[in-house]
Design a protein around this nucleic acid. Structure first.
Length: 169
DNA sequence: AGGATGATGAAG
DNA sequence: TTCATCATCCTA
């Protein structure tokens, strides 16, 4: 199966208190301190997995959380992994859903993203004016950093930005 | 449509 | 105790 990345968040060791790497290496986050191009998978809330792409040279400890994918191929496989009754738009609109849709779990922690089974490839370029920056989701520290990036009006992002107008009854 | 909640584990 | 979440169950 294959999905186009439509929403990500950046996590940085310096000044970013929301980053797993902020307090230095641990058993869990050690992949973040390794070479770029590897996948950092962590287990969260006792139930879910989330995946990040290590994106900067070794020990800088910068990673990009994959928050949403637009399903491209293998949609039937994704649905089998996510649940038969799950509609297309809910297959991979969320970090834990992305992992479930691509069958990513702790076995993939630290794997290279040019592997035979799991890999990242360059897609068609997205026009810069369609990329929206926003604040990150689900964090309580360093909330002000606008390091969530998503494609404008893409229906597969995990949630809309706060620009939606609320209609009053 | 939107808010509350429970599930459940790793790290400090 | 906190936490880079989600499905399900409410209320309206």
């Amino acid at each position: 199966m294959c999905g186009r990345i439509v929403e990500v968040e950046a996590y940085h060791q310096d000044r970013d208190r929301a980053s797993h790497s902020y307090d230095g290496p641990t058993q869990r986050n050690r992949v973040m301190f390794g070479p770029p191009g590897n996948l950092y998978v962590y287990f969260i809330y006792g139930i879910h997995f989330c995946m990040n792409v290590v994106s900067e040279p070794e020990s800088l400890s910068v990673a990009v959380l994959i928050r949403a994918l637009e399903p491209v191929t293998g949609i039937d496989t994704m649905r089998r992994l996510r649940g038969e009754r799950v509609p297309d738009r809910n297959l991979s609109n969320g970090p834990a859903r992305c992992c479930q849709a691509l069958a990513v779990n702790r076995e993939q922690d630290g794997t290279c993203l040019q592997g035979p089974d799991l890999y990242l490839e360059q897609g068609s370029p997205c026009p810069p004016d369609q990329v929206v920056a926003a604040t990150r989701i689900g964090i309580t520290k360093s909330v002000e950093l606008p390091w969530r990036f998503l494609i404008k009006d893409n229906p597969h992002v995990s949630r809309k930005t706060a620009t939606a107008v609320k209609r009053r009854g």
